[in-house]
Amino acid sequence: MTLSLQLFLATGGILWLTGLYGLWRNSDPIRRIISLNIMGSGVFLVMVTLARRETSTDPVLHALVVTGLVVAVSATAFALRLAVASQQEKR
């Protein structure tokens, strides 16, 4: 594994931890949703990096990332709608 790959992996890990920190420290729903998305990006970064660890690109991981993105997008949309609705209720 080359140094640049390790750098990417580390970045992915740091993103995941950053998201975790954000989720832990924030109480505002929108901020927490964004934190979750940062965590997700970290995982996806690790995935695409791992896809390059051998000479040929691993298509399985790419497929997984695409699936993961679809899940993340729909979940985020749902979460945003819920956040808005619960804010409205407060007012």
Binding site: W16, G19, L20, L23, P29, R32, I33, L36, M39, G40, G42, V43, V46, M47, L50, L61, G68, V71, A75, F78, A79, L82, A83, A85, S86, E89
Partner: peptide, 23 residues
Amino acid sequence: LRAALDYLLLSLFASLTYLLGVV
């Protein structure tokens, strides 16, 4: 709604933790 939102966020967080382990 509030309970549902908390449930969703925790559930998503758990999924991402799970996913990192899987990867």
